[in-house]
Simulated scan of single mutants.
Amino acid sequence: MNKLTIGLVLAFSSFILWMTYLANTGGSSVFFNLIRVLPYGDKLGHFCLFGILTLLINLASHCKSFPVGRFRIYYGTAVVTIFVLTEEISQKFIPNRTFDLMDLTADALGILSFTYFSFLSSKKPMKG
């Protein structure tokens, strides 16, 4: 299963990078058209894209984590958070893009929600 998960991470990451490239260069996509017609489509897209990526990377890395104070942070969660912050802040410097705090909020909610799903999926079933 891990090879499948790694393959999904690579495919999904490639999709996100392609969509980011199209957005940065003013390109168009059927996916951009879809989010325009859905109510809150852009925010839902941010939530789902980065949430699912977080879940996939956490699963592929077997939910490995590192300590930060009293907490443990999944490596996948940290990687996606750093990517999202870099990508969203970079929009201030790209002519075809605009920085939107609500996009960043949707990203964060997706990352946090799917980190929780990662936590639930990593729990071992209790033996009775």
Rank of each mutant, 00 (worst) to 15 (best):
Asn33Trp: 11
Phe32Thr: 11
Ala60Asp: 07
Val84Pro: 03
Met19Pro: 01
Thr115Lys: 05
Gln91Lys: 03
Lys43Gly: 12
Tyr116Thr: 08
Arg36Asp: 13
Val80His: 05
Thr115Ala: 11
Ala108Pro: 05
Phe99Ser: 01
Phe119Trp: 09
Leu56Met: 08
Asp100Phe: 00
Leu59Gln: 14
Leu38Ala: 13
Asp100Gln: 00
Tyr40Pro: 00
Lys123Tyr: 08
Phe99His: 02
Gly76Arg: 02
Lys3Leu: 13
Gly26Glu: 13
Ser29Ala: 07
Trp18Ser: 06
Leu109Cys: 13
Gln91Tyr: 02
Ser14Ala: 15
Trp18Asn: 08
Gly76Asp: 03
Gly7Ile: 07
Leu17Trp: 04
Phe50Asn: 01
Asn33Ile: 11
Ser65Pro: 00
Arg72Asn: 14
Leu120Cys: 10
Val80Ala: 03
Thr115Cys: 08
Phe119Gln: 02
Phe15Leu: 15
Phe117Trp: 14
Lys43Ala: 12
Cys48Arg: 08
Asp42Arg: 10
Ala23Glu: 12
Lys3Tyr: 12
Ile16Leu: 05
Asp42Trp: 09
Thr20Met: 03
Ala11Lys: 04
Tyr21Asn: 03
Gly27Val: 13
Ile73Tyr: 08
Leu85Tyr: 07
Tyr116Met: 07
Gly7Pro: 08
Lys123Phe: 05
Gly69Asp: 11
His62Cys: 09
Ile6Ala: 08
Arg72Leu: 11
Gly51Arg: 10
Phe50Leu: 08
Thr54Arg: 07
Gln91Ile: 01
Phe12Ser: 00
Asp100Leu: 00
Ala23His: 12
Ser113Phe: 15
Glu87Cys: 01
Val37Asp: 10
Ala108Glu: 03
Gly51Pro: 14
Glu87Asn: 13
Leu53Arg: 01
Ala23Phe: 11
Glu87Leu: 02
Ser65Thr: 01
Cys63Val: 06
Phe66Leu: 11
Lys123Arg: 14
His46Thr: 06
Asn24Pro: 03
Leu17Glu: 01
Thr98Val: 15
Leu53Ala: 11
Thr86Phe: 13
Asp42Cys: 10
Leu59Pro: 03
Asp107Phe: 01
Tyr40Ile: 06
Asp100Ser: 00
His62Asn: 15
Gly7Met: 07
Leu34Trp: 13
Lys3Met: 11
Phe83Ser: 04
Phe15Pro: 03
Ile89Ser: 05
Asn24Phe: 01
Tyr75Glu: 04
Asn58Gly: 10
Phe66Lys: 10
Ser65Phe: 00
Leu44His: 09
Asp42Lys: 08
Ile73Gly: 03
His46Leu: 04
Leu112Arg: 05
Ser113Tyr: 10
Leu8Lys: 04
Leu104Ala: 06
Leu8Ala: 15
Val9Trp: 04
Ile57Val: 13
Val9Pro: 09
Ala60Val: 02
Val30Phe: 12
Gly51Tyr: 14
Leu56Gly: 05
Gly26Val: 14
Leu109Trp: 10
Gly128Ser: 13
Phe50Ala: 00
Val80Met: 08
Phe47Tyr: 07
Leu101Met: 12
Ile57Ala: 07
Phe83Leu: 10
Tyr75Asn: 05
Trp18Cys: 06
Asp107Lys: 01
Arg72Ile: 04
Gly128Arg: 12
Leu112Ala: 14
Leu104Tyr: 02
Thr20His: 01
Gly41Leu: 03
Leu120Asn: 03
Phe114Val: 09
Leu17His: 00
Phe12Thr: 00
Leu53Val: 07
Thr115Leu: 05
Leu8Gly: 03
Ser121Leu: 15
Lys43Arg: 15
Ile6Glu: 01
Leu17Asn: 01
Leu59Asp: 07
